[in-house]
Each structure stands twice: as C-alpha cells, then as structure tokens.
Amino acid sequence: MLLDLLSALLLLAGAAFFFAGTVGLLRFPDIYTRLHALAKADNLGLGCVLAGLALQADSLAVALKLLAIWPLALIASAAVGYSIARRAERLGVAPWQERQP
C-alpha cells in the first residue's frame, strides 16, 4: 500500500527529528540554544508523527482529531519556550559565545 509506505516514512522522519532534538538538547552549550533544539526539532517530529498516523485513521474525523493536536503542541511550546527564555534572561544567563576570550 502506498498510503502505508507514506505513513511509515512520515513516522520514521518524525522519530529522526525527535532524536535530533534530544541530541541537540544534550550537546548544545546553553539554555537558549537548547530551546532552539526542542522548540523546532521536537515540534516538527510531532507534526510528522501525527501526519503519518492521520493517514492511517479510519475516518476523516479521527484524522482531524489527530491533526488538531499539532497546533495545541505548537502553542504550548511557543509559550513555554518564551517563558523559559524570558526567565533565563531575567536570571542573567548570558548566551554562550564561541571562542570565548
């Protein structure tokens, strides 16, 4: 089935983005860069997973329900990400710079 193949590809791509997000979280040098990794890679990973599963849904309503999760997750990570960055800046966490003097 072509649909199954597309689903599988989307699911695998989603897992790859989640993995990249985790690697970024583990390797990036400060809170701001780690936020970049999570806010972008993980959300894209979730979007791919949801799209892959929506293709497998029995009805349009179920597919819509799955896809409705994505904007909610985006709102959550935009808002939480902003709060964390704001908090870090208030705490005086300076952004990491390459080749520090």
């Binding site: 983005f17 990249a20 997000g21 400060d30 970049h36 972008k40 890679a41 952004p95 990491w96 710079q97």
Partner: peptide
C-alpha cells in the same frame, strides 16, 4: 527550522554563532 537545527545538532562540531 527543524531541518536546520537537526543538522546543527548532528554536526561533529555544531557551527553555532549565537547572539
């Protein structure tokens, strides 16, 4: 955005020039 940050995360030496 996801592809860019994923690429950076998986580089041997992430090319970050933050500001």
């Amino acid at each position: 955005g996801g592809i860019q940050v994923a690429g950076l995360a998986l580089q041997r030496q992430p090319a970050l020039r933050p500001a």
